[in-house]
Amino acid sequence: MAIPVPLTHERGTSKSPLYLPFLSGFYEHFAQPLAWVAFRAVIGGMLMIEGYPKIMAPMAQVGFVENLGFHPGWLFSPLLAGMQFFGGALIALGLFTRPAALANGVMLAITLWFHFAFPYGHAFLTDQGIAALKGGSEFFTPAGVKRLADGGTLFLEQVQTKAELASLFWMGGALFFAAFGGGQWSVDRNIIKREF
């Protein structure tokens, strides 16, 4: 789906807002549709990657979804797996894009809330654990000692921030496609010729 370029009218003529107006056809017919496909592939592909382990073990999330208040877990755990993996594939293809993206956008909003409500914690190690680590042990690699020297506080803060940002990015991307559809080079638009 090409985003229309607004035209300004001067003395009855149309003037392109582009510095290089001769590129308008390139942008409209190639660059914009390609960017739409690339972004769709990223959002859908990332959902598929995250959903693949859940598809391989569809009941593994029973306790997790029930702790979030979604009962019965035996229903919502495989539903979550299918929504992520197959919904991601639908988004990547541009097939039934809006409903697949909306379902995943809602799920990702819940995931974002979860990361804020249940952070990873302050540290891996207690003060005694830090003292034992600094005392020397063959159980830790030099990189592990460096990473855990503060008890893992900085590492957990980085993990927390990345989890929040990833959920925010995926949610924004999914809701973008829920609002605008799969774009000009989607299965919805080119094969089915209909969109939700």
Rank of each mutant, 00 (worst) to 15 (best):
E164S: 10
R194I: 11
A35G: 12
G73V: 03
A179M: 12
L154I: 14
P21W: 08
F26H: 02
Y52W: 15
T153R: 15
A35C: 08
E10Y: 12
E157N: 14
L79R: 01
L133Q: 08
S137T: 14
F196G: 06
Q128M: 09
L112E: 06
Y19C: 00
G63S: 08
L18V: 05
F76T: 03
A35R: 01
F124E: 04
G51Y: 02
L90N: 09
P4M: 05
G121Y: 02
A109K: 07
M59G: 13
G94I: 04
P58D: 06
W36A: 12
T126Y: 07
A31H: 14
F22T: 15
I55T: 01
F86L: 10
S14I: 10
T153G: 14
R40D: 02
V42W: 12
E195W: 08
G135P: 00
T111N: 14
A149C: 03
E50T: 09
F70M: 10
M46L: 14
L165A: 09
L75N: 10
G51I: 08
G88V: 07
I49S: 11
L175Q: 00
D150E: 00
Q160M: 12
F180M: 15
A31E: 13
E164G: 11
G182Q: 03
L18P: 08
G183T: 04
A166H: 12
A100T: 09
P53D: 03
H71M: 14
R147E: 14
M1L: 11
M59V: 07
S137V: 09
L90V: 07
